[in-house]
């Protein structure tokens, strides 16, 4: 069963189209990393899935519900952790836990207390006097306490010190191991979230640039080193070439939708001496996809 299903989703702010024709499904139990440069609509997408922003086009199903019409019921089983802290500033962690618990039938007070202890959250400090890192850790513990089936996490690691980032990652990994929660999380910390994702979506200027399983990335996108018989002046052009560079008779390409046949076709007009290919790290793939000038494909 799909935890999330989007078909041709579109969202505009006034006349500006922020998200256009976004379609993807997330099966239950999958962990999906939502990557993209600043301003590509990651936060807008996550907020719309929680029913905080109306959609203008397409349909969205979150755990089988429409977030626009059924937000209150949906939010009992979906946890959303926003980038900004919106907790009551005069309340402490335990007070917030006690305040929120009656709203959620599945609230797990024991799990909340355990998470607070593991995340080293102070029991007597009001939110307003907590550091940003402590606030985010408390938000995570509060988001997990109602035992959500689906987690939407907006930049869970942003602006945190390495210890706090580890604690947040450990809490997410522990939740996955114990409950198999479905997760969609946005992040700029590409290297740090890569190991916890089953799949990666890359957003770029309002549309999806890439949707791929983590383990197939290295096959689908490859860097190719070509040694030619003679130096050349121009690189081949093709929508699947994400980047290209020449040094004398050395050609270096980053190709998407890689196959041996596609590579042979691209190099048909060159006298090739040697070809070597290698996979890229997620960080390199992100830069290759999101960093280049838009090319119609």
């Amino acid at each position: 069963m799909n935890a999330l299903s989007l078909t041709h989703l579109g969202i505009s702010y006034g006349s500006r189209r922020v998200l256009n024709d976004i379609s993807f499904d997330i099966p239950s139990g999958q962990v999906v990393g939502l990557l993209g440069r600043n301003g590509t609509g990651k936060t807008t997408l996550l907020r719309s899935l929680f029913g905080l922003i109306p959609i203008d086009a397409g349909t969205v199903s979150v755990l089988g519900r429409d977030p626009a019409r059924e937000a209150p019921a949906m939010r009992l089983t979906v946890g959303f952790m926003s980038e900004n802290c919106h907790l009551y500033r005069w309340m402490t962690g335990p007070q917030l836990g006690a305040f929120l618990a009656p709203f959620y039938p599945a609230w797990n007070a024991q799990a909340f207390a355990d998470d607070c202890r593991r995340l080293e959250l102070p029991a007597d400090q009001p939110v307003g006097r907590m550091s940003k890192g402590t606030q985010r850790k408390l938000m995570l513990a509060l988001t997990l306490a109602p035992a959500p089936e689906l987690l939407l996490l907006d930049e869970p690691l942003a602006g945190l010190d390495p210890v706090a980032r580890d604690q947040i990652r450990d809490t997410i990994i522990g939740t996955l191991a114990d409950r198999g929660t479905t997760i969609l999380l946005s992040s700029q910390e590409v290297d740090e979230i890569a190991p916890i994702c089953d799949r990666v979506l890359i957003l770029g200027s309002s549309r999806l640039l890439l949707d791929a399983g983590r383990d197939e990335l290295a096959q689908r996108i490859r860097r190719v080193f070509v040694t030619l018989e003679n130096p050349v002046g121009a690189v081949p052009a093709h929508p699947n070439i994400l980047s290209a560079a020449i040094m004398g008779s050395q050609l270096e390409l980053v190709l998407r939708e890689f196959s041996d046949e596609a590579l042979q076709a691209l190099l048909a007009n060159y006298k090739v001496r040697d070809v070597r290919t290698e996979g890229l790290s997620l960080r390199e793939i992100f830069i290759a996809c999101a960093g280049r000038k838009e090319v119609a494909s």
Partner: peptide, 12 residues
Amino acid sequence: RELALELKVNPN
């Protein structure tokens, strides 16, 4: 669970 936490990777 232990190895996932140790390596900081997805339990899946």
